[in-house]
């Protein structure tokens, strides 16, 4: 199997997780899938750069994070990728009872700075270790933990869970 076939097959398996990551980062489902499309195109175009001994998911997630940053820059709205009132579309709907809670969560996420949203996506949703997230983001592990602590505090304050 040549490298581009290996990457393509890996991407097929990775697609659900990539979409989940993009949903946390980008918010709305349509924006998230636009981001996924860019990531797939970049990963395929750069498949020769992927070394089979490196984990494909981390490689692709790094591409996703950078593509998302590019998108934020292009939009010139680094703080808010989308209006918080639209943020409810970010999360899957799960019945009336949970809907309000999920809207609130999506809005709280939308208000996080990009640095913080990234660590939430990578560590809390994707389950990467601090070291893995640090390597992916090219920052020290201590930076990941301090961003994560501040992101958690901000989310809890927004959600009114801090009482």
């Amino acid at each position: 199997m040549n490298p581009s076939d290996a990457v393509r097959e890996g991407l097929i398996a990775l697609l659900p997780r990539l979409r989940r990551l993009a949903r946390v980062l980008a918010g709305q489902a349509a924006d998230a899938d636009d981001l996924v499309q860019v990531v797939l195109e970049r990963a395929l175009a750069r498949s020769a750069q992927w070394r089979p001994d490196a984990a494909l998911d981390k490689w692709v997630f790094a591409i996703a994070r950078n593509a998302w940053r590019d998108e934020l820059r292009a939009r010139g709205r680094a703080q808010h990728l989308f209006a918080p009132e639209e943020a409810g579309e970010a999360v899957a709907d799960g019945g009336e009872a949970r809907h309000a809670q999920r809207m609130e969560l999506a809005q709280a996420l939308a208000m996080l700075p990009p640095d913080h949203r990234e660590v939430v996506a990578l560590v809390l949703v994707e389950g990467l270790s601090y070291d893995e997230a640090a390597a992916l983001l090219e920052v020290p592990a201590g930076t990941v933990t301090s961003r994560l602590a501040r992101a958690r505090a901000a989310l809890q304050a927004q959600l009114g869970n801090d009482a």
Binding site: P16, R17, R19, R20, R23, V24, A90, V91, A92, G94, R98, Q101, R102, L105, A106, V120, L124, V125, R152, L155, Q156, L159, N161
Partner: peptide, 13 residues
Amino acid sequence: LDAQLRAAFDPVL
């Protein structure tokens, strides 16, 4: 909070 995040985003999978 972690559980809430997973519950919101895991269905995307």
